Amino acid sequence: MANLVVSRFVDHQPWHRQSVIFRRVGLHIDRDVMSRWARKLAWLLAPLGERLFAYIREAAKIHGDDTPVTLLGNGEGSRIGHFWVYLRDDRSSGDMSPPAVAFRFSADRGGAHPAEHLADYQGYLQADGFAGYNALYRNPKTKAPRDIVKVGCWSHSRRKFTDILEKSPSPIAAEAVVRIAELFAIERDIKGAPPDERRRIRQSKAVPKLEALRVWLETQNRGLSSDSNLARACRYPLNRWQAMIRYCDDGRLEISNNLVENALRGVALGRRNWMFVGSMKGGEAAALFYSLAGTCRLNGVEPEAWFTDVIERIGNYLINRIDDFLPWRWQASKLSNDLEKAA
């Protein structure tokens, strides 16, 4: 079971390909059987997935994003489902709390889904400009601020300009990329520094560059056709300016959402091979396995060894001690036991 799960969700081998590989050595396991096994295993591991997501929501800052995937229907054709991802990783600001990632699956991209996922969260959410997140920041009826504070992403803003440059030369887009690159250069020098130090350097070096960039973007935008791609690229950070500069006020925050985009790479690679999700239950199971495997990767834990041990023991384990199986705790316990045996 551990081998099947790791092959699918770490090494991106779809069930039918694994079935063919096994048949070559005389082991006949139908792909539908593998899929059913995986859903049953997901049921067994679900409490651990919930505990993992609860740990992420305890952080003062989390990163959020989503990615589409084809979802097969029951005789109704396919549609576009979505994996939502939430990441806790504060190592760039000197906080060595274990990083963790959690995925959720939905049949559409409605804003109700992140609202449900983060219903009890209080803190910073670093995400792109997707309108579906808006209800997280303000009450739709009263417009009063909520306990989740929006933080923008300069990588998304930069991408608007690089997309233009890929199609045709543009001095304005080129200068925008250079100006944004100067902001990222500041971040490279303070990676891993404590929050107070990061804030101090950003206030002295990044804030003047940001103010100059704001004035420059406003000037360029006034001379452009309002429906041009270049004007839209200029307006993207201007329309979100307070969220875009918020990272300068708190050293725990990041200049971009690149950390969570890295966490989505496994899904993007796997999607090219398995191509679709067969059902809602299949998507929910996949989200759980991506959460567990992704957290193993973030903590340097060998995923097949972890899944093997957890699958063997979790069924008879005390529910109030389930945190023992969180990858970083499991790794620490394993190292401790290995040292005792060596002694």
Rank of each mutant, 00 (worst) to 15 (best):
M280Y: 09
R51L: 15
A268K: 14
S157G: 14
D95H: 08
G266W: 00
S106K: 05
Y55C: 01
A343V: 11
H12D: 01
R199G: 07
G73F: 12
A119T: 04
D309K: 07
M1A: 10
K40Y: 01
G123H: 09
S97H: 08
T219R: 15
H12C: 06
L292Y: 07
V5T: 07
S93W: 07
W328P: 02
G129Q: 03
P114C: 05
A46D: 14
S93C: 15
T219Q: 14
A176H: 09
N229I: 01
I21W: 07
W328Y: 11
S78R: 13
E302D: 13
Q13I: 12
G223F: 10
W274N: 03
K167H: 13
V178G: 04
E218I: 08
L210Q: 10
F103I: 00
W274G: 02
D95E: 11
A131T: 13
I319F: 05
A38I: 03
P303F: 06
S7K: 05
E312M: 05
D120W: 06
R240A: 13
D89L: 05
A100L: 06
V10D: 05
Y317M: 03
Q220K: 15
A305W: 02
N273L: 08
R246L: 13
K167E: 14
K191T: 14
V207R: 15
V260S: 04
L41V: 12
R200K: 15
K160G: 06
V207G: 09
L253D: 07
W216G: 09
